[in-house]
Amino acid sequence: MTERIIDHPILGKMEDVNHVTFSFNNRVYKGLENESLAAALLANGIRTLRYQEESGSPRGIYCNIGHCYECRVTVNGQPGIRACITPLKEGMTVESSGQLKIKEKEV
């Protein structure tokens, strides 16, 4: 399980956090409002965001700033959304896009 850095020796404590609930592949998780979807998922121990269309091999974030499109997911029914640059909102429904097989990771 990956951890949040609540207290940082230079950056200090995390401020203004507002918890929201969202779902990923039909499971419910908690995250922080307006953090990136990729960050919210990683904080919940989830690295695999999709399965490659042809090979079915698992993929996660690579660049984390919108350049590489490795982190594409479906958000509220809209496919091809980059998880690394999409702010998390209450009630978001997120699904792995392009998957041929879904492997549920136990968290």
Partner: peptide, 23 residues
Amino acid sequence: TLPGVMSVGAAQVMTNVHRVKPG
């Protein structure tokens, strides 16, 4: 291409901006 491999800048943003450990 394995999940968990990322650019070094990605780890920087995860850590310092989002405050989530890359691992």
